[in-house]
């Protein structure tokens, strides 16, 4: 009984210790953002590795998600003779939910895991310690540029995902299944609101960008400096990022669209 209690207590303390360290890490990273903006060349290189290299997977999955939405929406709307509403269905589900969320999940798998592995290996080979020896602050030199790059890339990737998805839905719905092109666009424009839907989608994806990068960088920074430790940290990044994205999505949806 006492052992069980002790176990529980230790786990709780470890959890809070981890959260505290993550919070301190976050504050340090945000403190370095100004320097990252001043030396934008470093950030540019990171935008290339997390943003540009993720483009292929984002565009392809966006296209297929949009096409599936078009197909499924058509099959179900056709039962009610409401095929014209296909545009609303595709656009709203992509812009509000699927765009930011699926982009977040793909980003965690494609870019987040790479970030963790990179930072973890830097720690294992003591590059971070070497930087500190040379009076280079790794927060400013390593973490802040990567963090900033993620925050910049994520909304752009989500927007590309949604736009490509809408076109994919158009291709299937209008091109293959014969929904009227005019009503596809006009019904969409009539019910998608710019400030209500598009801007909220962008805000969502920016929040997911902050969460995914924070988790990825912190897990790398916190990794046990062995080969096994780095691999475990990479796994943790993907799992925790996915959970964070889905959990945050519910909270944000409730805040943004809950009252309608």
């Amino acid at each position: 009984m006492m052992n069980w209690l002790q176990n529980l207590g230790r786990k709780g303390l470890l959890l809070f210790e981890g959260l505290g360290r993550a919070a301190i890490f976050f504050v340090g990273m945000v403190g370095g953002l100004g320097v990252a903006l001043l030396r934008f060349r470093l950030t540019l290189r990171e935008i290339y590795s997390v943003g540009v290299l993720s483009l292929v997977i984002i565009v392809v999955s966006g296209l297929f998600v949009g096409m599936v939405l078009g197909l499924q929406g058509y099959v179900n709307f056709a039962k009610f003779n409401a095929e014209e509403s296909l545009g609303i269905f595709v656009a709203l589900s992509l812009v509000r939910e699927l765009g930011p969320v699926v982009t977040g999940l793909l980003y965690a798998g494609r870019a987040g895991s790479a970030l963790t592995a990179e930072i973890g290996l830097m720690k294992t080979t003591e590059q971070l310690a070497a930087m500190e020896m040379m009076a280079v602050d790794p927060m400013r030199r390593v973490f802040a540029p990567r963090f900033l790059a993620g925050i910049i890339s994520m909304p752009l990737l989500a927007a590309i995902f949604s736009a490509v998805g809408v076109l994919g839905g158009y291709f299937v719905g209008v091109g293959l299944l014969g929904v009227d092109a005019g009503s596809y666009w006009s019904q969409m424009q009539a019910s998608v609101d710019f400030s209500e839907d598009i801007v909220n989608g962008v805000i969502k994806s920016a929040v997911f960008g902050v969460a995914c990068n924070w988790i990825a960088l912190y897990e790398g920074y916190d990794a046990v400096p062995t080969a096994e430790g780095v691999s475990r940290a990479t796994t943790k990044t993907v799992v925790r990022s996915a959970l964070a994205v889905l959990g945050l999505d519910f909270i944000l949806t409730a805040l943004m669209f809950g009252d309608i």
């Binding site: 935008i47 290339y48 943003g51 812009v95 949604s162 969409m188 019910s191 609101d193 598009i198």
Partner: peptide
């Protein structure tokens, strides 16, 4: 990176003009 940002902005612009009201 320039091309990426341009494509992202173009996607946002398309969402704003073509998809929303």
């Amino acid at each position: 990176v320039g091309a990426f940002v341009a494509v992202g902005c173009a996607a946002l612009f398309m969402l704003a003009m073509k998809v929303s009201n």
